[in-house]
Structure formats: C-alpha cells, structure tokens
Amino acid sequence: MTTAIEVQGISKQFVLRHTRSLKEAFIWLIKGRKGDLSEKFHALKDVDLMVEQGETVALLGFNGSGKSTLLKHISGVMIPDTGSVRTRGKVAGLIEVGAGFHHDLSGRDNVYLNGAILGMTEAQIDERFESIIEFAEIGQFIDTEVKFYSSGMYLRLAFSVAVHTNPEVFLVDEILAVGDEPFQKKCIAKIQELAAEGRTLVVVSHDLDLVARICERGVVLDHGEVTFDGGIHEAVAKLRGA
C-alpha cells in the first residue's frame, strides 16, 4: 500500500509563562521570588505514526494528551522541534473553525480566499461555488461579512469549502461539536463518503461513539506519547478504562 502520512520521531515543546505581564514579572523579581518565570511543556515526545492511503484513523486522548498538536503537525500548521512529517497528496480539512477566513470579507470572498489557501484555482472555485454554498446552507448570507456569522455558520461554510477541495488526506479536529445536529449528520455522511472513495481520514474527537462509527483505527496519546495503536474499538475501550 501507499503511505499517505509518515511521522518519524517528532517532538514539540512549548514555553509556559508563569506571569501575564512585565509588571507581574518585575514584582516577582523585586520580592525576591526564585525560580524561572517560565517552564517547558512537552506536547509531543518522539512520536512515530504511519498512515496508509485510504485508512481512517482517530487520534484519541484526554485534554493535553497531544492529539490536536499532532494533527497540526500533519497539516503543516506546526513544525516539529525534532523529527519529520511527510504527507502524500493534497491535504485539507478543519483544524480550527474559521481558520483562513478574514472577518471583514463576505462569505463569498472568503470562499475564494479559503479555497485558494487550500490549493484550489479560481476556475475550480468558480466551478464548485454553487455546490459549496448549497452544502453550507447559507445562501442568503453569502454576501454578508463573516464577522456577523454565528459559529455554526462559520462551521458550515468552512467545512463545505474544505470537502470541495477533493483532498486525498482529510483532517478534522473537533469541529463537529459546533454545528447543530442536522448539519452534524450531513458532515458525518460526507466524511463517510470520502472514506468510501478511498480518501485518507484523520480525526480528533472526544466523541468516542462517533469515531467508532467512522474510523477503523485508533491511536491513543497520553502526555505527548503514543500508548496504543490498533483497532478503533480496542482504542476506545482503552481510553474508557475497560
């Protein structure tokens, strides 16, 4: 089989600040408080992950486990401190609701902006525009500035643009929790359609029942390390402590 995603030994750490302002830091020093004003948080620790073309994979774990950070590395939003990430084919998806949108532009303008960011040409966007708007169900608001959109409207438009890029690798991070139930069902059906077409799917979600329905493989992370990689039902059981 063809490898769609290859993650080799990646690590990522962030600096956590103990103070919120220069004033607080100055008071800290004046009062003679010892110790560094910051500490390092290891979000990922030497993570390896291979995903074959057409696999449907859920990244699972509790808050702070590193699953969203790993997904951002796969998408290219983040660069690892050490290690490497390689992907094959067009990568698209929703890492954050409204990412790539400009608040002062209309929904129409943002379709073209976001579509271009995700690798579509203007001609391709023209061709798919009506389908994008129809799927998003925001026709009457398409020429309204998106700063006036609700989070649900953001989601519908962002998801619609992403799926219409026809990606080989589709990434989803918790965005289904934002939409209403009818649109969630519509998104899930579209994701299942992409999977049936042989697209590679990587999902981050706390909804274990949902990922068990749409994914075949589960990767469990804990404090930045992979603790389990196998069948989705086994992964869900491990996370639930069964």
Rank of each mutant, 00 (worst) to 15 (best):
V7W: 09
V7T: 09
Q8T: 15
I10G: 03
Q13D: 10
V15E: 05
T19N: 14
R20Y: 07
S21Q: 07
S21A: 08
K23S: 13
F26S: 13
I27Q: 11
I27K: 09
W28L: 08
K31H: 11
G32Y: 00
G32K: 02
G32L: 03
K34M: 06
G35I: 06
E39P: 04
F41D: 02
H42D: 02
A43Y: 01
D48A: 05
M50Y: 09
M50G: 13
M50E: 15
M50A: 13
E52G: 14
A58M: 10
L60K: 10
N63G: 07
G64L: 06
L70K: 11
K72I: 10
I74V: 13
V77K: 04
P80T: 00
D81C: 07
T82A: 11
R86D: 12
T87K: 08
G89N: 04
G89M: 09
A92P: 09
A92G: 08
I95A: 05
E96P: 10
A99T: 13
G100D: 09
F101S: 05
F101K: 01
D104H: 04
L105P: 03
S106Y: 03
G107L: 03
G107N: 04
N110S: 02
V111I: 15
V111Y: 05
N114E: 07
I117Y: 09
T121P: 12
A123H: 14
A123E: 15
Q124A: 14
E127Y: 04
R128T: 04
R128V: 02
E130M: 08
I132C: 07
I133L: 09
E134V: 01
E134A: 14
F135G: 08
A136L: 09
A136T: 08
I138E: 03
I142D: 02
I142C: 00
F148P: 05
Y149C: 10
Y149G: 09
S150V: 12
L155S: 06
A158T: 01
F159T: 01
S160N: 03
S160W: 00
V161H: 00
V169K: 02
V169W: 04
F170V: 00
L171W: 05
I175L: 14
V178K: 12
E181D: 08
F183W: 04
C187T: 06
I188V: 15
A189S: 13
I191C: 11
E193N: 10
R199S: 12
R199G: 00
V202R: 01
D207A: 04
L208G: 00
D209N: 13
L210D: 06
V211P: 01
V211L: 03
V211I: 11
R213S: 14
I214S: 01
E216T: 15
E216Y: 08
R217Q: 04
V220K: 10
V220E: 11
G224M: 08
E225T: 13
T227K: 14
D229T: 06
R240M: 14
R240V: 08
G241R: 07
